[in-house]
Design a protein around this nucleic acid. Structure first.
Lengths: 273, 273
DNA sequence: GTGTAGTTTGAATCCTACG
DNA sequence: GCGTAGGATTCAAACTACA
């Protein structure tokens, strides 16, 4: 079996999108893509965490917070502007009966949900990813923040025949219909990509089972999945694993190169190397 | 023991607010209340459900959805306007170091959260009330909507010494710090108020244990709790049960009269009648 | 290899009182 | 407002070290 995944460094040919990882800004790339192209979109945009100070655990070790450049915004106005821009393009490139998933935390999800509703997206569900092993609240001043929220929506109130694999979801919930509270551990251990120094490659890598559930819930085999904030390509791996195709966009070429390594490892596993 | 709860039909004397249920529009009532009055606010505003058609169960019985007049808004703009108005007043009457809780579903919580952030409220947590017994999705076209979301916030980013009873919460979570996923059954059975014909008095009565947790988490004994959408006074009952005081506002006098009955029953229980 | 103890770490808007 | 010193504060999972 030969997994044919390609990195595209300068994206121009809009027909070249099947199982590609495109290096570039998602907005610029989307602008080159035709209307009604993708069956579903999964988006994990920056959360705009607004971390102020350093945080130490009770044992005085420092918490490695998300301080990446890509998560820095100059207030809600700029974050909203950014969100509106990509959500508008996302709506255009999403097929008429496609669905979109967006994940976020309380820092950004109210912005995102509000904008989506204003744009005419019609929410199907909010889904709560409940973490089995979240970081505790070390100072004891709030509740443990043990969840992230996903919004699942269609382009328009009128859309009816979107894909929802009801029976497949039932199988994953002991024969009962799947609910909107989903329980997964955070991405850790062997799954978590780390460089030669043992440093995590991406500060917010999502767990593969979460993406697999999304793929299994809302796509058919052969569907084309789009992820505008591709990161290290968890979405692509989930799609590929279940016989779906994908188009990933990611600004940071380092992430993309790691994504290619993931696929190589995946291939080696399959061929028993 | 004599529980002294009073209904106030025309509210004018702003000093008369301790353990009172005020009949009236929350905005008009709040305008008569001084700045920095309440220790916490709990608000369960209309959800703006936008139900389109009638919904039937598989056995052809009709689902009694929320179609009350108080939940009718003319689009998001009107809902946002309404939300801004009461949230602005709420901020004013909340004490400097007080906290506010607002509950909602995906229909309205993104509007509410967005507005709160725009107004300078600083979110402490989003809390997911996970329902043990939600209504299934009868048509099998979405995930079971098994949750509601609460936003817990302070008036301003700079507020530090708000009340959070960390150890008390720990006691309610097997000695571990309390997380933001809360598991309660929907309000049903003996707790659910029903009239002489067996029809539920209020279409969205909240479970008492949910309100008790909020009271125990974020108030001290003797604190004054405000609820602008009082309904049948679950907030007041929770406050009273734990030695806190309350001010409730409710437009519908029928709900208020039922609230008074709740307190009378509560008193009878305590005196063994 | 097996079992146990110790270590590390995770999308985090994480202190308070006093001068 | 600011700066600083004092003091209280963590859970689960996966990994490593070692007997």
């Amino acid at each position: 079996m030969n997994i044919d995944i390609k990195k595209i460094k300068s994206f121009n040919d809009e027909s070249e999108i099947i199982n590609k990882i495109i290096v570039g800004d998602c907005l610029e790339v989307m602008k080159k893509i035709k209307d009604n192209t993708f069956d579903i979109i999964f988006a994990d945009p920056p959360y705009n965490m607004q971390l102020q100070n350093e945080l130490y655990r009770p044992n005085n070790t420092k918490v490695d917070g998300v301080d990446d450049e890509w998560d820095k915004f100059n207030g809600f106005e700029h974050y909203d502007e950014f969100s509106k821009a990509w959500l508008r393009e996302a709506k255009r490139v999403l097929k008429k009966n496609g669905t979109i998933w967006v994940i976020g935390s309380y820092h950004n999800i109210f912005r995102v949900g509000n904008i989506m509703q204003d744009m005419g997206y019609w929410i199907l569900n909010d889904v709560h990813w409940i973490k089995s092993n979240p970081m505790p609240n070390f100072k004891g001043v709030r509740l443990t923040n043990a969840s992230e929220t996903l919004v699942w929506a269609v382009k328009d109130k009128k859309v009816k025949n979107y894909t929802f694999n009801y029976e497949e979801m039932k199988k994953h919930n002991y024969g009962k219909q799947m609910r909107n509270d989903w329980y997964f551990a955070i991405c850790n251990g062997a799954e978590r990509l780390k460089d030669e120094k043992g440093v995590k490659v991406h500060s917010t890598q999502k767990p593969l089972p979460l993406l697999e559930r999304i793929v299994l819930a809302s796509t058919k085999k052969g569907d084309l999945v789009f992820d505008p904030f591709g990161g290290t390509c968890t979405t692509g791996v989930a799609a590929y694993k279940h016989g779906r195709n994908f188009t990933m966009v990611e600004k940071d070429e380092n992430y993309v190169d790691w994504a290619l390594k993931r696929f190589k490892n995946f291939q080696n596993q399959l061929t028993g190397i």
